[in-house]
Design a binder for these strands. Structure first.
Length: 109
DNA sequence: GTATTGACCGTAG
DNA sequence: TCTACGGCCAATA
């Protein structure tokens, strides 16, 4: 097959392991998956997360900005979900992203 | 099989 | 400090 289901599976697994009230970046996940700079693929994988029921709202870019919120069903659904879990979001950006940042390569390792 | 895009990241100016 | 450009890997056209 041309695609790598294993890569997707890992992304889903890591994202699913993200604790509530915590967020991570695509690059962190990509790095954890040893893909390095393939952070774009992480987003692509999460694009199919709907079928897997993966909490992709906990995944943001390095800037802590909810870049993928436009891909969610609602307009502010991602933000609402994050706030519900305790992650405060302001202007489409995670508040105290530096503190809320959850690095799988560090926490999970 | 080639070209362009993508929920990004890092470095340079 | 802010803006601009390139790179990386994979999927889609």
């Amino acid at each position: 097959m041309a695609m790598e289901p294993d890569f997707y599976q890992k992304v889903y697994e890591v994202v699913c392991l993200i604790p509530e009230g915590r967020v991570t970046s695509y690059g962190a996940i990509a790095k954890y998956l040893s893909v390095g700079r393939a952070s774009r693929m992480v987003g692509m994988a999460l694009n199919n997360c709907d079928h897997f029921g993966i909490p992709a709202h906990r995944v943001v870019n390095r800037n802590g900005m909810l870049t993928g919120k436009y891909h969610f069903p609602g307009t502010n659904m991602m933000q609402d979900l994050l706030e519900t879990e305790g992650t405060k979001v302001k202007d489409d950006v995670v508040v105290d992203f530096k503190k809320r940042f959850w690095d799988p390569s560090a926490e999970l390792l």
